Simulated scan of single mutants.
Amino acid sequence: MTHRPTRAPTWFRIVAVVLLLWAIAGCYACIQQFRLGAEAMEPASDYDRALYASLPIWYNAVYAVAVGCGLLGAVALLARSVLAVPLITLSLIGVAVQFGWLFAATDIAQVKDWWTAVFPLVIAAVALLSVLLARRARARGWIG
């Protein structure tokens, strides 16, 4: 006998769609960074170019894992798959590693404006809330 998930509330499906759109935007930003480097988001300063050139080789891989797992996790939420939990958790870990290293190992917080610190916090908050949502959905039987 197979387990059928219980019907998820409408708000859950709406949030899952919003997370999917968020993840698509993250993938777009990642691809732009791979294509354009420091120039991805705006005309880059000399500092931006030097910072991007100094990123370790694994940095872009972690970025790709963070956004890729976020995208796959959002799709899994919409498909009501239990895979959403580990995928979204991997995305959160990737975000933590990516921004943790960036702020701990560079002087970006001292050089850039306040938005440079705030936006990564927003990204981390969305990732954390996504994990909590996926775990709640699993516990309530909305996915599985």
Rank of each mutant, 00 (worst) to 15 (best):
M1T: 14
T2W: 11
R4T: 15
P5A: 00
R7P: 15
T10S: 12
F12R: 07
I14Q: 10
I14W: 13
V15Y: 06
A16N: 08
V17S: 04
V17Q: 02
V18W: 08
L19H: 01
L21P: 05
A25S: 13
A25C: 09
Y28P: 13
Y28L: 15
A29Q: 11
Q32H: 10
Q33I: 12
F34P: 00
L36E: 15
E39P: 02
A40C: 14
A44N: 00
S45W: 08
D46P: 03
D48S: 15
D48C: 13
L51V: 10
A53Q: 06
A53I: 08
S54A: 12
P56S: 07
I57Q: 02
N60H: 14
V62Q: 02
Y63T: 04
V65K: 03
V65I: 14
G68W: 03
C69M: 08
G70C: 10
G70M: 12
G70Q: 09
L71E: 01
G73W: 01
A74M: 05
V75N: 01
R80L: 02
R80F: 05
S81N: 12
L83C: 01
P86N: 07
L87Q: 04
I88C: 07
T89E: 10
L90C: 06
L90A: 07
S91M: 11
L92C: 09
I93R: 07
G94C: 04
V95I: 09
V97Q: 08
Q98C: 07
G100Q: 00
G100A: 04
L102K: 00
L102C: 06
F103P: 00
A104R: 05
A104Q: 07
A105K: 15
I108A: 04
I108N: 01
A109I: 02
A109M: 04
K112Q: 01
W114P: 05
W114R: 02
W114F: 14
T116S: 06
T116M: 07
T116D: 07
A117K: 03
V118T: 09
V118N: 08
P120E: 06
L121W: 13
V122Q: 04
I123H: 02
A124G: 01
A124F: 03
A125I: 10
A125P: 03
L128C: 12
L128H: 05
S130H: 14
V131P: 10
V131A: 06
L132K: 09
L132D: 08
A134Y: 12
A134D: 04
R135D: 07
R136M: 15
A137P: 01
R138D: 09
A139D: 08
A139I: 11
I143D: 00
G144K: 01
G144I: 01
